[in-house]
Structures are given as C-alpha cells and as structure tokens.
Design a protein around this nucleic acid. Sequence first.
DNA 1: GACCGCCAAACAATCGTTTGGTAGACCCTC
DNA 2: GAGGGTCTACCAAACGATTGTTTGGCGGTC
Lengths: 219, 219
Amino acid sequence: MDQTPDDAAKTAQGSDTEGAETPTEPPARAPRQDSRREAVLDAASELFAVKGFDGVSMRDIARRAGMLSGSLYYHFPSKDDLFAEVHLAAVARVTARLDAALAAAPEEPWARLEAALLAHLDGLLDRADAVAVLSPHFPTERDDLARRLAAQRDAYEERIRALLADCGPRPDLDPGLLRLFLLGALNWTPVWWRPGGAADLAEVARALTDLMRRGAAPV
Amino acid sequence: MDQTPDDAAKTAQGSDTEGAETPTEPPARAPRQDSRREAVLDAASELFAVKGFDGVSMRDIARRAGMLSGSLYYHFPSKDDLFAEVHLAAVARVTARLDAALAAAPEEPWARLEAALLAHLDGLLDRADAVAVLSPHFPTERDDLARRLAAQRDAYEERIRALLADCGPRPDLDPGLLRLFLLGALNWTPVWWRPGGAADLAEVARALTDLMRRGAAPV
DNA sequence: GACCGCCAAACAATCGTTTGGTAGACCCTC
DNA sequence: GAGGGTCTACCAAACGATTGTTTGGCGGTC
C-alpha cells in the first residue's frame, strides 16, 4: 500500500517529445450533457483532498476524469478557479449536513452543539471532502486564492459561533477565542483520525463537547 | 515589509536561456567556516515557514542565502533532507523553550500546563518557526518525508501528554483525545493569530488552559 | 451550417538535481 | 618563504522532467 504504482506507469510510457497524455478511460463520448463537468469536479475533489493543491497537476485531474489536460480549460479558466469551486462545493456539502443534523437535534444547546460537531466531522472525514480544511494551510503568501476560500467559509464559521453562543458560556471566557479553540481541535482531526481507529466520530464529537462544556478537571 | 522586492529583480533580468541565477549578495568569500551552512538553514527556515514546502524552490533558498541553487547540494543531499533538518531544528528550539519555561514554573500542574502552552505558542508564532506545525499538513501521500517529521515531533508530544496526565483529568475522558484536542487548538493558532491582534499570547495560553480545566459552561 | 465538447500538440517557464570546473584557504616540503 | 598539492565551498551551466496554459482543429449533435 505504500508504493505508488503510478510512478512505474509514469516513466514507462512517455518516449516521444512531450506528454503523450492518455486518459484512463476514453469514456464513450457522452451525448449532450454537462455531466463531464461534474466528473471533473469529482476527480479534482478527491485528488485535492488527498494530495493538496500543489500535489495535484491538471494532468492528474484530467486523467482521472477521462480527458486531456487542455480540455479542462473549456470548463474552468484556471487551476485556482477549479480549486475554488471544489472548495465551495465542499463547504456547501458540510453546511447541508449541518442543517440536516440541527433539524433532527433536540433543543438543549449543548446537545445541538454536539450534533453540529458530529456533522462537521462527518463531512470532513467521511468522504474526501477535507478540501474544506486543508485549504487554510495554504502558503500564507498566496493571498489571492486564500482570501477567496476564507470568504467561502465565513458563513459556516458564523453558524458555529452562534451555536456556541447559545450555550451561554461563562462571560469571563472570550467567545472569539472559544470558537477558535473549538475550530482548531475540530479541524486538526484530519491529521490524526483514521477510519477504523480507536475512536469513532460520534465518540470524538461527544468527548469534545464534554470537554468544551465541563473541562477536564475532576469535579 | 510586506512587498517583496525580489519579484521585480526576478523578472527584470533573465533574458538568456536558463536561469542566469544571481544571488542577492556575493558575500565576500567567507574564509574557512561552515557558517554558510547555517545561513542556508536560516534562509530555508524563514521561507518554508511562510510559503510552505512546495511554495519554496531551491533557487529561492539559494538566493536568500547568497549563493546558487546547485551549491546547496554541497551541504544537503536533497530538498527533502534540507526541510527535515529545518524541521528538526525548529522542534529542538520549541523543546528548549518548553524546558526553560517548565524550570521556572510553579509546581501546580495546571499552572505548569499553562506555562508549557505559552512556551509552545511563543516558539510557534514569535519567530517564523511555524515549520514545526505547517508540516503535518503535508500531502497525505507524501509518506516518506511525513513519517520522518512525525518521528521528530513524537518526543515533544509525549511531553505534552505527560503534562496533561499530571493534571489528573477526569477518568471518563479519553486522555488520548484530550491531548489531540489540545494540540489541535494549539497548532491551529498560526491560522488566525496575528501579532498585535486582539489577544496576546499569554492571554491565549491562559484562556486555553482555563477552558481545558473548567470548561465553558457557567458554574 | 453552427455550436459544443474535446483532442493533439505545443509553449514558455520552472522545477530538483547533476556535472565539471575553479578560486582560495590550508598543509607540507624544500 | 617559495612552490606544489589537496581540500573546501562554491560558480556556471546545463539536463530532463513537469508545470499551467494556449492554440488550432475536428467529430458529433443539433
């Protein structure tokens, strides 16, 4: 599982001048839909989530979507724009999950917070939607793109802030710091959490809510 | 301080075939010391911390250190190795700060934890040593390098775990999760904290310790 | 015939890295 | 103290691969 079989194929074929790109599937000439565009978005989403922005080339995405790199520019004006759209879709997906979770949650504010955290973790780790969180770790200097992505996340983080405020935290704790600590603990999970590991997501959400609520010191 | 005058020089000169690299300083032929090697490490550290691994080229580092890209390979066998050494130095620096802080700290375990967190934040945000924390956000698939860096951080994270255990947390809270939440909140700070912002580091350390100890719910 | 969606091929730039050479500091010998 | 030799630390220049992107054309559907 550790070796990447792509490397063998990568060096094994190209003998001519340039790329001689060949998409994995010559996908039977789809009729007249824009379904191919979404296929590109899906491919890009999975790749970006795993290997990061710089770790994925336009050719990687194209191959996964069954086309050539140049063809991507029919659908998206640049790699930055493609990433931004992938990111936006991921944020939307997590937001939708949050809405659904809150609709089914009880009224007690801490229980609502726990439900929200679980939805967040689900959307973050269940699929490969980690794009939503990998992005803030962009090079600090890549201001243009980074700012667009931050704007996309603003509304979502505001939701989290409101849920926290509903819990009525102690007035001597800065609510801004509170939210940042929570988001930090939350967004750090992709670094260590693995499916099938020691703790499942519900347990993580429960423990984090409990910590936020009562702290770790014994009563 | 925000604009990079390098960019102007970068595009303004190169007209010939390849690089035509010119280091910013022709640093007067240092006598017979290995001081240049540390200059490379310093340059690399500052650049990596700000722009990330993929955002920095060997030519960038070389220019900052006053030499040409090929010369770096006299000191370091590869870019990966250079980064690993920068990372190791950053971890060592933060560890040293932690030792100093603990030596001057009182005996009460929560106070010790707070001192440790402050030292961590200091080492993380004060200088450009964020390499220590930016690194885990490497592409998940870059196994080789990522594993080396994780090993470098292991001893440090064990220290944090021990400090937390000394606080005698409630037995119904998984101490592993506790540590991960704490590290998450801590390591997320480079994303939002800015010098001169709303909260200074001591305040952040105090608030985080207080949250970990007593939680956010009112008594 | 028009337009959509894609291919094929190239473009210029940049990347990490290698190779061969060389100026100067050092050491040894005469 | 002059001369030779060696080693250190670097320069200069390239190599091959890969990058994001552009351009022109073409088969198929309407």
